[in-house]
Design a protein around this nucleic acid. Sequence first.
DNA 1: CCACGAATACTTGTATGCAAGTATGGGGAG
DNA 2: CTCCCCATACTTGCATACAAGTATTCGTGG
Lengths: 228, 228
Amino acid sequence: MRISIAERANGARARARVYTLLREAIVSTEFHPGQRLSETDLAERLGVSRTPIREALVRLRDDRLVEIVPQLGTYVSRISRQAIDDAQFVRESLETAAVRLSAQRARPEDVAALDAIITRQREAFRDSDVARFYVFDDELHRSLCDLSGHGIAWSLSQRASGHLNRIRRLSMTLPAYIDEMIEEHVLVVDAVRRGEPEEAERALREHLRMVISAVPDIERSHPDYFES
Amino acid sequence: MRISIAERANGARARARVYTLLREAIVSTEFHPGQRLSETDLAERLGVSRTPIREALVRLRDDRLVEIVPQLGTYVSRISRQAIDDAQFVRESLETAAVRLSAQRARPEDVAALDAIITRQREAFRDSDVARFYVFDDELHRSLCDLSGHGIAWSLSQRASGHLNRIRRLSMTLPAYIDEMIEEHVLVVDAVRRGEPEEAERALREHLRMVISAVPDIERSHPDYFES
DNA sequence: CCACGAATACTTGTATGCAAGTATGGGGAG
DNA sequence: CTCCCCATACTTGCATACAAGTATTCGTGG
């Protein structure tokens, strides 16, 4: 099977495209935790050969999102409490360190941009558009990291947060927390506005721990998604 | 070219072995910053095909240690100030967060193990065995992370520290700092022993910043190794 | 002698073929 | 009927062949 020039020009390189697609499928639990994946099958369904599939799967294994057992099969990782704790630890460490710097460096126009994101989150909340809310949630956290001058905090945090994001996605159907989350964002941004790194860190840390609080609920409603 | 069963049984999977070899070659500056690499050439020299070479190089690109330009070539990344700053930021964030937890959790036998590592560092210093000193340096930092219950802090920190470690290696020939570093280790371990997370974090952060201080020297002595 | 162009010798990206190992299912023996 | 063994149909890991693009160099024309 050959891939046409049109297809190649379409998006990124096949490997990058496949990685993004597969990661999204796993994090959204469209691919269920524990599900078996076949390189051959994926290659056919995505219209590429096994090579880019393999390279994407290897990268996903770095993310702890798949487990590759030689001569046996590749499986979507079940959600693991240790992996969740690790992801939470990494996210807290990197993002709180970043937001401290951001609180020291942010200029008024930077803070205005953060305010604008929160406004859009409120709109999404009013429209009950949960998916859009989460898009701006990511956008806000990324902006907070970028302002620190270490955008890498967000990229690493994201890559390490696969297990955590599955929890987030599964709890999206319970938008009870959402207005609470928005108010927490306001607290963080206000601390950045006032240039108070300690308070910004404290508020962000408390905010990040909300995700974790959903774990027991998810574990009850989807026990087969979890390890052991 | 075929790879014999003996060779396969020898070490790890070819991909992992190649990754380790290439990373070591880059971090030790055996492969010079800016040097061009050829997949075909590496494949011949390491006695494997291009496939495991490619997969290793892709992973090294994630580490920002190589730059892959399609249809043009693969190059060892030149040392970049931004990459060093980012690595320092990640290392500080993750390791100080970990050592805070370790200071709260460490049992006496854990601290004894840390003491033992420092003793070996002193021995290596007495023997002027700089390489061995750095082995135990890594060992100590890894142990401090493991004690926190988040060994991932060390693995991520290491993967992100490629550019930083090249600086470390280049400054190994100047062992003036070494006894100073050992005394800083003592400060960190003592704080852990006393169960003082704040002091442990402070001492570790100060210690981690020593590496950075060597950057200007290295930049003067190896200007061609740096970006722009 | 200089400039320009085409062929050549590379490069990485992708596709495909082969090797080795494991689970499984069906058939035969007890 | 049950248990065991072997053939089979998968799996991933690695090797290799092909496609597409770029820099270089050599040769030719001005």
